[in-house]
Design a protein around this nucleic acid. Structure first.
Length: 462
RNA sequence: GGCCCUGUGGCGGAGUGGUGACGCUGGGGAUUGCAAAUCCUCCUACCCCGGUUCGAUUCCGGGCGGGGCCUCCA
């Protein structure tokens, strides 16, 4: 069954067929590495990682090329570097490394490549030069600007006409612009700002330039899928399209445009002024990365998702139930099975993860009810296959329960708990119920939930 | 002002022109020394007003509510 994806440009769900099944190309606008990334930054990373996994399963691991860039030239980076009196590379390398750590904690696969702006200065300068030569760009007060009126398709992606927009609605129109919607491709740098030499004077590229140049350099003139957050539709992706299509004689930049919706924080917009920005770096202190990933996937990627403590708690409970099943199936070797057809169909339907989660629930129910070893092995195989597609259930169940969040879970703790549980099990064998209950009470105080089984007791953190 | 998205039970969240996904919570039951886990079972919904239809939560129109974007932004 083919994969259907909602394409922002055509505003329809369409069957996805790559231009070349041997080389499916996908690009995601990645992080600007000037600080810790927040949970909202990771929604596209997790969602499109799931799509990456799905495409790899469909076309073969070697046939999918997924580029997620790192923006390492940006005014916010310059500001951070100036404040800390260091080179920008000190800032960008630090936060790129942290971003990769956070990504790994959310079980996000490394993309095929992570191109950087600083690594593509020549390509960007070349792109700007070509657009200048072709008359799509002009120089003004040391800047190079793209002239949006030179591209008749401008506004097609976001569905807005130039005349509908309010010039200066939010930001004052700069003096060097011929038209308010023209955007900067190259700008001069101030005295202490990072600067690169170019035919149009020393300076640095505008934000939109890097994606067009890197896609051209790494993936080709037309890619299959271009993805990002909803806020990037305008102007960022509109501007990328303008640059790339004008540089490529009108050849489309991407065949499918995918955009994820935003997270709300306790029903409010996440913003610095409201002080409700949640950094993944901080969330990971209280929650396992897999809980964050699961929570992000409980909603459909195009819909808004309300990020709350309840959502996280619910996600943790559900995952715990699922890992409980896997723990009970621990001594059964999974057979090699495909994920259930309904689960795959849900993901194929524009990455309908809530529907896929519903299928997962029935799968676990079936696994819990399995009587024979053959059934257990089959269901375990299906669970692991489904999990691999959405990046869940890839850790050892025992470690899930024993590391389960927070810093109190260290090794000595675990040994102490093991001791108490073993003592209680012995008391139960002796039918010394008073002693057994006393030990349970002691464990309750440690927020440990014990499960008695015929051949021993197991425990988890409550 | 323009453009886009959205409104489902106590909560989260799919889906559908006609038999009310799935999960959490709550009630009941099986099981258990007591529990936990597991299983079974029950309760509660489709923003409002028109239209189309034998029949609309689902399609169409209007209204109301919520959100996003209009050159920082996942």
């Amino acid at each position: 069954m083919s994969i259907a994806l909602y394409d922002t440009r055509t505003r329809r769900k369409r069957d996805f067929e790559p231009a070349n099944r041997e080389e499916v190309t996908m690009y995601l606008c990645g992080p600007t590495v000037y600080s810790y990334a927040h949970i909202g930054n990771f929604r596209p990373a997790v969602v499109f990682d799931t799509l990456f996994r799905l495409l790899r399963a469909e076309y073969g691991e070697q046939s999918v090329v997924y580029a997620r860039n790192i923006t390492d030239v940006d005014d916010r980076i310059n500001q951070a570097a100036a404040e800390q009196k260091v080179e920008i590379s000190v800032i960008t390398e630090k936060y790129a490394a942290i971003y990769r750590e956070d990504s790994a904690a959310l079980n996000i696969l490394p993309p095929s490549m992570e191109p950087t702006a600083t690594g593509h200065m020549d390509e960007m300068i070349d792109l700007v030069s070509r657009l200048l030569d072709a008359g799509h760009a002009y120089q003004s007060e040391g800047h190079v600007l793209f002239s949006v009126s030179s591209f008749e398709g401008y506004g097609k992606l976001s569905g807005r006409a130039l005349e509908d927009m309010r010039p200066g609605a939010r930001v004052e129109v700069a003096s060097y612009k011929r038209a308010p919607a023209d955007f900067v491709m190259w700008k001069p740098s101030g005295k202490d700002e990072p600067s690169w030499d170019s035919p149009f004077g020393p300076g640095r590229p505008g934000w939109h330039t890097e994606c067009s140049a890197m896609i051209e350099a790494k993936l080709g003139t037309t890619i299959d899928i271009h993805a990002g957050g909803q806020d990037l539709i305008f102007p960022h992706h509109e501007n990328e399209i303008a640059q790339s299509m004008c540089a490529h004689d009108g050849v489309p930049l991407a065949r499918f445009w995918l955009h994820n919706g935003f997270l709300d924080m306790d029903s409010e917009k996440m913003s610095k002024s409201l002080g409700n920005v949640k950094l993944v770096h901080d969330l990971l202190k209280d929650w396992q990365g897999e809980v964050l990933r699961y929570a992000l996937l409980t909603g459909h990627y195009r819909a808004p998702l309300d990020w709350t403590g309840e959502l996280l708690a619910r996600s943790r409970v559900t995952l715990g139930r699922y890992y409980g099943t896997l723990r009970r199936l621990g001594d059964v070797a999974a057979t090699d099975e495909p994920a259930p057809a309904g689960f795959i169909a849900a993901l194929h339907d524009d990455l309908n993860t809530p529907q896929a989660m519903a299928k997962l629930s029935t799968l676990f129910k079936a696994a819990n009810g399995a009587k024979t070893d053959a059934d257990k092995a089959k269901f375990k195989g299906q669970i692991l296959a489904a999990g691999a597609l959405i990046g869940l259930f890839e850790q050892d169940p025992e470690s899930w329960f024993k590391q389960d969040n927070n810093e109190t879970a260290d090794a000595s703790d675990n040994a102490h708990i093991d001791q108490l549980v073993a003592a209680r099990f012995k008391a139960r064998q002796d039918k010394n119920w008073a002693e057994a209950d006393r030990l349970r009470e002691q464990l309750n105080e440690l927020k440990i939930i014990v499960e008695d089984k015929p051949d021993g007791s197991i425990w988890r953190r409550g």
